[in-house]
Design a protein around this nucleic acid. Structure first.
Lengths: 235, 235
DNA sequence: CAATCATCGTGAACAGTGTTCACCTTCGCA
DNA sequence: TGCGAAGGTGAACACTGTTCACGATGATTG
């Protein structure tokens, strides 16, 4: 609960949890999402399979924890890319962050598949309103919102809004507004989601190899779509 | 090999193959991609598991055949949507085809996950140059190319090309050119792939539930991106 | 200090899974 | 009438996730 009393036992427990998730991730990168097996993890850590149930309610809960960690990893990588260009214009910083998203995804295809691919069990994972995965996703998005906020403080948005009445937009983006509040004007939210789906589409198809029938190198397409999307946010 | 002599035995065999794939698809829609199990299929068809090896080399080969069929189904649905608007302008017909793609995907989330989600075994499926799956994918793409061809016959492309030298573009789209030839000017290919990744991104995120944190209804975003993408091809 | 109780780990077991093998029946063809 | 190929079976192997009764260890309290 708190970090006040790590209490030795909790320390050992945390250590084991860490090793278990580490082993799961090793199996993930070695053989893809389906290669994550409870018994293989147990072998790696030096335990028997039932022992893992003292730490995770099920295999699904374990991989959910791994996915949560991965989102944190990705967020950290993107944030590091932002820090690395701290003196750049916020909008070009966003560009570098998105590039880092692509770079990370291509370097970690198995992790990407687990995070952004099809949620295998019930096709659509039931997302509890306050589970740690949603929090990690929110923190990931927040990284972009922070930099975007810097930009719009200096250059108030004056671009074109989508052809939708404001009330409809407010209705449409209700989930976003509930989580992140009214920091940005509604058209900015629209442009951000549009940009996110575009770039996700490219990266996902590239990682999954769904573009090899068309082109040898996806980077030019990515760069063009990136500059287009950022351009829409700028003007 | 040929359809000349269905030869009774081949008829029975084809019948069994059909029933097996049908059972696999039932399991798919009922419980997602992981619910497809050799023994469950065998139970459904009224056989034992080893018997299926007379028809498919492995479970992977079986689901590959199912995926191929699904691509043909999707292609047929999109083609039907095109026929349903046969008297419309080719470019608005393309719009209806893409809408049908979204509609079909939302109505068949499990199938979509199997077709467009992460290739589970090795993260990136090894695509043989001439396997039936690639053929099905090519036929799916061909459906769009046919309609686009109708348009560009009447209205030669005069839009803006991406900022790339022609030689680089020819190099970039080598896989496409090898399969589909030089039917369209290179900028059209670029715009098509860009549009495809955009719309795939939206549909995939919607089907997988990865947009619920932001918006209640994805349709406005989809329609706006669709009209934008088609607009780029028009002018 | 001693008793107690939650925590941690184990081996056995159950119900599944994909795949291989030897064996047998059945069918098509010469 | 034979013969060989095709189709189907049950047993077996090596896996998988999960549950359970049991024992050992640790920390906490009387």
């Amino acid at each position: 609960m708190t970090t006040a009393t790590p209490s030795r036992r909790e320390r050992l427990r945390a250590e084991t949890v860490f090793e278990v998730k580490e082993a799961a991730r090793r199996l993930l990168v070695a053989g893809g999402p389906t290669a994550i097996s409870l018994r293989a993890i147990a072998r790696d850590v030096g335990l028997t399979a039932p022992a893992l149930y003292r730490y995770f309610a099920s295999l699904d809960a374990l991989v959910l924890a791994v996915v949560t960690d991965l989102f944190e990893d990705l967020r950290a990588a993107v944030a590091a890319a932002a820090d690395h260009h701290a003196d750049a214009e916020p909008l070009v910083r966003v560009g570098h962050m998105v590039r880092e998203f692509r770079r990370w995804s291509l370097a970690h295809p198995a992790e990407f598949a687990l995070m952004f691919g099809s949620p295998i069990p019930g096709v659509t994972r039931i997302a509890a309103p306050c589970d740690p995965l949603s929090d990690a996703g929110a923190r990931f998005a927040e990284t972009f919102f922070t930099t975007l906020g810097e930009h719009f403080e200096r250059h108030p948005f004056a671009g074109a809004a989508p052809d939708l009445p404001e009330a409809a937009q407010r209705d449409l983006f209700a989930p976003y507004l509930d989580t992140f509040g009214e920091r940005f004007p509604l058209p900015v939210i629209y442009l951000f989601v549009a940009a996110w789906t575009r770039l996700y589409g490219i990266v996902a198809m590239e990682v999954f190899g769904h573009l090899r029938w068309a082109m040898t190198d996806v980077e030019p397409l990515f760069e063009l779509e990136l500059s287009r999307s950022v351009g829409h946010l700028a003007r």
